[in-house]
Amino acid sequence: MVGIGAIPAGIQCIILYWLPESPRYMIRKGRDEDARRVLFTIYSGAQAADIEEKVAYIREFTEDKRPGTKWEKAKKDFKSLYLVPSNLRALILACGLQGIQQFSGFNSLMYFSATIFKIVGFENPTAVSLIVAGTNFVMTCVTFTMVDRIGRRRILIGTLWGCSAGLLICAVAFHYLPRDPNTGEISATGSNRWAILILVSQIIYVMFYALGIGNIAWVGQSEVFPYNVRGFGTGMATATNWGANLILGSTFLTMMDRMTPSGAFGFYAGLCLLGWLFVLFLFPDLSGFTLEEVAEILSTSFGIGETRRRREALRQLGQDEKRRRQEALMDKV
């Protein structure tokens, strides 16, 4: 099992050979021509003047003219992560998403799914847990085709409700499982309708998790931090993810024992609803905006209204440009 984990890591290591550095890194290192080539690849069809404007814009935001040693600058950047309002809001968003991702209970379910299915009476719990894991893989692939078309915020608002529903159904099904009248322990078999409902509810939960917070937590983390605090910010967010994972992994079986399985899954459903409130009131859809634009949006608020205003302005600009071209074509005719 440990060796199998090396396969995807090896594939990723190989394909990294064709992954270029980011334009911001190249411009910061004085490799403007390399940055232009990457930008032409990203913005296919762009004019040379547009790329030059982009290079100048990136240089303005990434060029470090501050005095001091590298260590002194690093200390200032770390402080600015908490003292600069836009950076602090970015940190809250990134850490919040990563916390939601873990406290929704997914990794506990993955770690102990075979144990859960054994409790409810399935004869081959490992094979059943592989069905749940396979659902996660398939829906993750589906997410890649949806995340930019639908938008991060819309997907999260919808899928966190779905996660809560799946967990609540699972909690109810656990409550109604048949029990031994003498010991009170679960005495169901895999063919019991409530056991089957537990399997179905966990598949529903995993589907919505993979479509939403399971992926968007990492996507959102990569979109909110400006260049100078990017390393510190992503490090803090990733530490939040694995710190929460440690808490869940070490408490899940205890919760199942002390709170009953129904209580444990109901508790995770409640955390998903809290995550839904976090997204509803704080998380803007930042897809399509540059890192510099994101810093501007987060400078005064969490930017839910501002991102909508900017998207509408861009949409109107596109309509005006289309109208202008149509008028020019009619004049030629």
Rank of each mutant, 00 (worst) to 15 (best):
T140E: 02
T140I: 07
T140A: 12
T140M: 06
T140F: 05
C141D: 00
C141P: 05
C141A: 12
C141K: 07
C141I: 15
C141T: 13
C141S: 08
C141V: 15
V142H: 04
V142R: 03
V142I: 14
V142S: 05
V142D: 02
T143I: 01
T143F: 02
T143N: 11
T143L: 03
T143H: 05
T143R: 04
F144I: 14
F144W: 09
F144E: 10
F144L: 14
T145K: 10
T145H: 09
T145E: 08
T145Q: 15
T145I: 13
M146N: 10
M146K: 06
M146V: 14
M146S: 08
M146L: 15
M146Y: 08
M146Q: 13
M146W: 11
V147K: 05
V147I: 12
V147Y: 07
V147T: 15
D148R: 01
D148E: 15
D148H: 00
D148Q: 01
D148Y: 01
D148V: 05
R149C: 03
R149F: 01
R149L: 00
R149E: 04
R149G: 08
R149H: 12
R149N: 13
R149P: 04
I150T: 06
I150K: 13
I150G: 09
I150W: 10
G151E: 03
G151C: 14
G151M: 10
G151S: 14
G151F: 12
G151W: 07
G151K: 07
G151D: 07
R152A: 15
R152E: 12
R152H: 08
R152S: 13
R152Y: 06
R152I: 10
R152N: 13
R153V: 06
R154Q: 12
R154G: 10
R154F: 11
R154I: 13
R154H: 11
R154E: 07
I155N: 07
I155W: 04
I155A: 04
I155F: 13
I155K: 09
I155S: 07
I155Y: 09
I155M: 10
I155Q: 10
L156T: 10
L156N: 15
L156Q: 11
L156P: 15
L156V: 04
I157S: 11
I157Y: 11
I157R: 09
G158P: 08
G158F: 12
G158T: 14
G158L: 10
G158W: 15
G158Y: 14
G158I: 09
T159C: 15
T159A: 11
T159E: 07
T159N: 14
L160D: 00
W161V: 02
W161Y: 06
W161M: 05
W161I: 07
W161G: 00
G162Y: 05
G162P: 01
C163S: 09
C163Y: 08
C163I: 11
C163F: 09
S164G: 06
S164I: 05
S164Q: 01
S164Y: 08
S164N: 04
S164M: 13
A165H: 02
A165V: 15
A165Q: 00
A165K: 03
A165I: 14
A165R: 00
G166K: 00
L167C: 05
L167A: 07
L167K: 12
L167D: 03
L168G: 02
L168V: 15
L168W: 04
I169K: 02
I169E: 01
I169L: 06
I169Q: 04
I169P: 03
C170K: 00
C170L: 01
C170Q: 02
C170F: 06
C170I: 03
